[in-house]
Design a protein around this nucleic acid. Structure first.
Length: 170
DNA sequence: TTAGTGATATCC
DNA sequence: GATATCACTAAA
């Protein structure tokens, strides 16, 4: 079944591990359905989280983070890589979950490349969207946690907390 | 280890 | 207007 708005309305730290094992479904304009099971996510939560884009305050770019849950936040990194997030939590709370890897396509930019995600998806939604959505097929993988990566600038504390959720055993 | 790439934010 | 920064990847 497809995930509903209620799924994303919870705290990022609840949604992120729950998303691991779910399936991203992407329907291309020609009708092809791409499916990818989520293998890894990361939570970004609040202005006090130095790794979160919203740490610098509210800007046109981070405005989405403060908005409705279930919204797609797509960000172009290093000029060539699209990274995909989903907004979680209540309105007004800047938090979201980054899709870091799928079962087949390991790496955030590889995921978006495979799923053909680009900036036009920014501001879209995973709920009630016929181009992309997330399904739960009942599979519940074993999940372990690890420190987030790629945020060396965030400081020792935010680098060390384990807000990365990975399917499978060590 | 380093190059490549472009939007965003921040500083003139 | 100019510069610095960046939730990455591929090639070496």
């Amino acid at each position: 079944m497809r995930l509903t708005g209620e799924f994303f309305a919870r705290d990022a730290l609840e949604v992120a591990p729950d998303l691991v094992g779910k399936i991203i479904v992407r329907k291309l304009p020609d009708g092809t359905e791409l499916r990818e099971r989520i293998a890894e996510t990361e939570a970004y939560r609040g202005e006090e989280d130095k790794g979160c884009h919203a740490a610098k305050g509210r800007t046109p770019r981070t405005e989405l983070l403060y908005g409705k849950s279930g919204v797609i936040y797509v960000y172009l990194c290093y000029g060539m890589h699209w990274l995909m997030n989903v907004i979680t939590g209540e309105d007004g709370q800047p938090q979201g979950v980054l899709f870091r890897a799928g079962e087949v396509h390991d790496g955030p930019a590889k995921l978006t490349k495979y799923l053909q995600i680009n900036g036009s998806f920014n501001g879209g939604t995973f709920v009630g969207n016929e181009e992309i959505w997330i399904e739960d097929d009942g599979f519940r993988p074993e999940i372990h946690t690890a420190p987030r990566v790629g945020i060396d600038y965030a400081g020792d504390y935010w680098k060390s907390i384990e807000w990365r959720f990975i399917a499978g055993k060590e």
